[in-house]
Design a protein around this nucleic acid. Structure first.
Lengths: 251, 251
DNA sequence: TGAATAGTGTCTGTCAGACAGTATATT
DNA sequence: AATATACTGTCTGACAGACACTATTCA
């Protein structure tokens, strides 16, 4: 009997044993920037445990899908956004598996970072999914500073903090911040995103000088509406910035 | 009935439903540097599927432990090393959940990055665990270049590649490379680690100048054994290097 | 003394940070 | 004209890269 036959016979005779099994969920840290403020989509829990508390949107990973696929599916179910049409950035953050993190049962969560493109003024409506009494956008830095009076369910505050850390760090050496803006944007819009995520002001002139060679110039300019020179429109391809941007207050 | 009672009653009446469940494993990317070469611990599979192929060590996550705890447990079971005594670096890498990645059943793997401290010349013995016909150390860059003639089981080649990428990247802005060395080490030893991981030579003089202020000087010097000036001994506390080191060939 | 290694000094080009100055638009 | 915004120019200090040089050990 050759190896291929041995392998096929093995697979046919195999019966899953009593391996420890866990329920797997995909949780979402969905970021968007409006009004110069970084915001995260949170749902108000309508059921126990943590009834009435805010939580990250998420749901169970199906038996025939990856965690990433589940995250994308949850995103469209909760927000009505379609990953296929919109250029939505989705990446895996980390997995949270501490025993007892969900008082009901053994739940392991694969957290994902999602960046929604907005024009900087309006936010897509988030709809409450199952088990949720409502959903809305909340300012990230205020949530983490605890100045909103709201606390998050489960270990979701930690997940939110690590999501922000990932985004803020990645913006130093990539152009991923552009995923929070429409396909074409001005340098001022991009700088606003950086300032919202880093929660620190940046010098406009130096930002232009550093960022311009990292972007594609469309050659067109935006119609100036507020008085002032018309700004050039850029597009971004995901690329590495080298040497990286320096973040104020990091040292 | 108040909220606390409602929550308690809910938990008591709760019965786990038919949520999709998965088997969860913790896989290990264990790195060590000897002879100026970055090596990874791999086991030879003794059972189907992928019998005879090399694979990352790992095992199931128990019902009452986190993925990190399982990774530490597997590490001592497979290598005989104790996380409690040795300063072993362990961090989560990523979670791999593609359906069909294990032909037997639904298995989701939380991969972990482990850095073992060595003196640069000898390697700790790795013992084969259950289901393994053997275990040994293999050169990472050769494995990834495919020049060893060995191929890895499952999606472990991708996990290995992402483990190397994480380590190489983190070494730019932290002193984590010191976790691959004993508690006290010389700048030449540390530079050797950088060169092994980055697979590129570094200018010794400039490396010293950049690295020295990031480390703690013990004030003592190593006994020179090869002829040459005695090198100063340093220790490292995990800290951020700002601005980061620049990696040759990154641009 | 010669070889090998550790560490410092020096020069140059690049770039970040600060900020002034210029250009182009709206009102 | 006044004002607001976009962008460029300029200066300075810091630092990376290259490399020469000195210092300290072993054989």
């Amino acid at each position: 009997m050759n190896e291929a036959n041995a392998e096929r016979d093995y697979l046919e005779s195999y019966r899953p044993g009593d391996y420890p099994s866990v329920a797997l969920t995909a949780d979402l840290v969905v970021f968007a920037v409006t009004g110069g403020v970084l915001r995260v989509a949170l749902v108000r829990r309508g059921a126990h445990p943590f009834k009435g508390r805010l939580a990250l949107p998420g749901g169970f990973v199906g038996p025939r899908e990856s965690a990433e696929a589940a995250a994308g599916r949850e995103l469209s179910e909760e927000t009505g956004l379609d990953l296929g049409t919109l250029p939505v950035h989705l990446e895996q953050l980390a997995t949270y598996s501490a025993p007892g993190r969900d008082p009901r049962m053994r739940v392991v969560s694969v957290a994902h970072l999602v960046l929604l493109a907005t024009d900087g003024t309006s936010l897509p409506a988030v709809s409450a999914g199952t088990d949720a009494a409502g959903a809305d956008w909340y300012p990230v830095h205020e949530m983490l500073a605890g100045s909103t009076g709201e606390s998050l369910a489960f270990d979701h505050l930690q997940i939110l903090a690590e999501g922000l850390q990932r985004l803020a760090g990645k913006m130093e050496y990539t152009t991923v911040a552009a995923r929070l803006l429409p396909g074409e944007f001005t340098l001022t819009q991009l700088r606003t995103v950086y300032e919202a995520v880093w929660n620190a002001p940046l010098a406009a002139g130096n930002f232009t000088r550093k960022m311009t060679p990292q972007l594609e110039d469309t050659g067109r300019k935006v119609r100036a509406s507020t008085g002032g020179a018309p700004a050039a429109l850029f597009t971004a391809s995901d690329r590495y910035i080298y040497p990286p941007l320096s973040r104020p207050g990091q040292e």
